[in-house]
Computed example of a mutant assay.
Amino acid sequence: MSVGLVAPAKTELEWLASHLGLSQVDVINRALQIYGYVERQRAVGGEVLIRHNGETEKIHII
């Protein structure tokens, strides 16, 4: 399988792989699992929230 990435996604993939010490394939596999989880939660009315410095923010993926 080959994947065509837009430039910002390619840059993010390269950064994540380097930062985490993972292969690009491992990063893509993890990203797909997280995305699947988020979409399954949204399908049943759930939300994904992030808390940073005491502030809570709802994550929107469009």
Rank of each mutant, 00 (worst) to 15 (best):
S2G: 11
G4A: 12
L5K: 01
L5Y: 04
V6S: 12
V6P: 03
V6D: 14
V6I: 13
P8T: 12
K10M: 10
T11C: 04
T11M: 12
L13Q: 06
E14I: 04
W15L: 13
L16Y: 05
S18Y: 00
H19P: 02
L20A: 13
G21D: 08
S23Q: 05
S23K: 09
Q24Y: 03
Q24D: 08
Q24V: 00
V25H: 11
D26T: 11
V27P: 02
V27D: 04
V27E: 00
I28T: 05
I28C: 07
R30A: 12
R30K: 12
R30P: 01
A31D: 03
A31E: 02
L32S: 05
G36V: 00
G36F: 03
E39K: 13
E39Q: 14
R40F: 04
R40K: 14
R42E: 13
A43Q: 14
A43H: 04
V44K: 09
V44W: 00
V44I: 09
V44D: 01
G45S: 02
G46P: 06
V48W: 01
L49I: 13
I50R: 04
R51S: 15
R51C: 13
N53W: 00
G54E: 04
E55C: 03
E55M: 09
E57V: 12
E57N: 02
K58A: 10
I59F: 07
I59M: 10
H60M: 08
I61R: 08
I61C: 01
I61L: 15
